[in-house]
Design a protein around this nucleic acid. Structure first.
Lengths: 351, 351
DNA sequence: CTTTAGCACTCGCGGAATATGAGTGCTAAA
DNA sequence: TTTAGCACTCATATTCCGCGAGTGCTAAAG
């Protein structure tokens, strides 16, 4: 079922001009674009073949052809050639990622925003722990007599804190004590294990002390829960409106709503090929109904050792795959590099 | 220029049915809705008067009337009656605000989302410090030989931390020393003052120690900058698409883009009447071009003593002001109460 | 067997023409 | 001051028609 070179050439021309124009491509246009030295009739024959084989579709009897999902698939797998980023673009990406305040969420957010801007499509991001996370250490800092700060550091190097108010005062030694208990009993435990340990502890600890322990541990559990959760965020959803396929609101609304509901349920990438680190899902290949007519290009990257992030681009099936994949893979690489070591991405282009 | 009761009644009927239907209201409809015992001809006369006085407009000669900006203004000022929230709604709001993890940003985000859901309009939120913020105290926690956590607490009780890596090891006494310097020299300073102090310090401090100080102080300055900044966030922008005035993408796109660009420049509320805590801006009353055809209803609330938040609803001039104001004011009150004391909002309705 | 020219046919799209009807303003009578 | 009557306006929906891009088929040519 291998296609002749000529067929491939024709298919490629059709995909690319359809990506550019969003309008069905006719035999005449193909003949001009390919530079193939054959007449339009020949091309029509080939196109009829391609249609029969399922790579092309006709919207109606008398119009040009548009690529089918299979057509796009063949294109991205074999026909598409890798695009090169311009210097400005790499510069821009590097600048964007080179944020001062190294808060994870913020960097990811920013990354999404920039990718959306340079690709002209909406972008989503997710991040989640690969395995269970545990608390690495607790620190307690006295602030006033009736409040202290609990600092929790997890084994993926995230540090969170919370101001905890206490009705009765607390002496410094008491705080030391509390800290010792926490560090000896709750380090290295998962969220569930913490819950259990806390339960067991309740009966054989003085109520006053237990209450304090519980407050800190509950905070720690929230931190772990929060870290383990898939955080789904989007950027640039309005880019959708720039593409003719979403000019009618009936098409645009469901997708936009889907994307902008930053619900916490894990969503999109039920189907992420874990082997590859770049995935393309074309139209009907998406499981989710809201995405049936759209394509998703996504890449995963590592955040330190224990977390994995996903960043993806959403667009019509007629998406500029070459452009998007080039930008996306650069992004994913930069992010991995950035989170792997605390260094700015290397090979910063000169000038 | 006071309007007769009958005129007011007619105006009110027109505003409300136009809000409900989004279509020009004719004399016949008014006659039925008001229950006024006069003929349509009389109403036509009155409507002609109201048009002349600038409260109504005709899209074209032979169509019903729609309210002008002045008409809406009169309506919200005098004619509109306060709507009551249902028990479910108050419940929902309370639940939403009663979050565990008390991170400011997150609570505000959540609030925006819920308000958007119950009002069916996009919502924006902002928060900024009223006056200058300073650091209240520094804490440093050793993690390993080559890293420590800097904890910065500001005078508006925000606590942030950062993991700082250091090339050469650091002993515990050295850390104590560092902490002492920070707490004695940088507490109570604004961002600019910190910068100055740091500059002065550079010449008369050992380079190694200075570098460490600088790293922590820079982090503190970022925290202050971040706190002082207006953080503009939106939720539920897709609700716009539900309203017929934004059915054409030409209308919807600019506004949506405007709203979804969470740029950090202070934006919307250049015109916030500081006296009142609830503001309504109708169509052309908005300074910003992107908002010329939309109305903004916003309320401000206090976050602790030193910060002020703004939460607002954006919609077409034909917005359901009664509904929105009721929900918004409840929200603003709840938020103030919530941030004022560390208590859940009172008067939680029973079942 | 492949390619090409020729040709009739299909069908979506855009513009003009037309019909519709809600709503108005005016006038004259109550 | 209110009301009934009426001619008039004009945005919207509907229909109709012609255009033209593009197709598939056939038959001849390479």
């Amino acid at each position: 079922m291998a296609l002749s070179d000529r067929k491939k050439c024709i298919l490629r021309a059709i995909v690319e001009t359809y990506i550019a124009t969003a309008e069905p491509v006719g035999s005449k246009a193909v003949s001009q674009l390919t530079g193939l030295d054959v007449s339009t009739a020949t091309i029509r024959n080939e196109m009829a073949d391609l249609t029969e084989q399922g790579y092309l579709e006709q919207p109606h009897t008398s119009a040009g052809r548009i690529p089918s999902a299979a057509g796009y698939r063949l294109y991205v797998n074999e026909l598409m050639d890798r695009q090169q980023l311009t210097l400005q673009e790499t510069q821009r990406i590097n600048d964007a990622l080179n944020l001062k305040m190294g808060e994870l969420d913020r960097v990811i957010d920013r990354a999404g925003k920039v990718l959306s801007q340079i690709s002209d499509y909406p972008v989503f991001t997710m991040a989640a722990a690969k395995e269970r996370i545990t608390v690495k250490r607790f620190d307690l800092l006295m602030v006033e007599e009736n409040a202290f700060i609990a600092v929790v550091m997890t084994d993926n190097s995230v540090v969170k804190n919370k101001l905890i108010r206490i009705p009765d005062g607390l002496s410094d030694p008491q705080l030391q004590m509390l800290s010792a208990v926490l560090n000896s009993s709750f380090v290295g435990l998962s969220q569930e294990e913490m819950e259990e340990t806390l339960d067991k502890m309740e009966t054989r600890t003085a109520p006053g002390a237990f209450e304090l322990i519980a407050m800190v541990v509950e905070f720690a559990m929230e931190v772990l829960a929060d870290q383990g959760q898939q955080k789904f965020r989007t950027a640039g959803i309005t880019h959708l409106l720039e593409h003719p396929e979403y000019r009618s609101l009936d098409k645009a609304k469901p997708l936009m709503t889907y994307l902008s509901e930053e619900s916490d349920v894990p969503r999109l990438p039920a189907t992420l090929d874990t082997g590859k680190n770049m995935n393309i899902l074309i139209g009907p290949e998406n499981v989710n109904d809201a995405l049936k007519d759209t394509s998703v290009v996504m890449a995963s990257y590592d955040i330190g050792d224990n977390m994995r992030g996903i960043i993806g681009v959403v667009g019509p099936t007629r998406m500029d795959y070459a452009k998007v994949t080039a930008r996306l893979s650069y992004f994913a690489d930069s992010l991995t590099r950035m989170f792997g070591k605390e260094l700015p991405p290397p090979e910063k282009p000169e000038e």
